[in-house]
Amino acid sequence: MTVADLKKGQKAIITDSSARDIPLKLLEMGCLPGNEVSLLHIAPFSDPMYLTMNDTHLAIRKQTAALIEVELED
């Protein structure tokens, strides 16, 4: 599953963020395996997504979110 599949309020752990099209800037903001990500809000028409990742609050588009592999936290 990927970040794009998260529902509002869900938390997950990043398992893989090595896809080529993930911008370096996102990695630098903490999009790295082992870090927690949670979905705070979704903009109208379900895109972009407002996340917290590594304690940073940020928004990315769904197509980028779909590249980040995650596992749900229990």
């Binding site: 911008p23 903001m29 940073t56 609050h57 928004a59 990315i60 980028t64």
Partner: peptide, 11 residues
């Protein structure tokens, strides 16, 4: 062009 979009949501 490739699309990418990252924006910080400051407090």
């Amino acid at each position: 062009t490739r699309s990418s979009f990252v924006i910080e949501m400051p407090d």
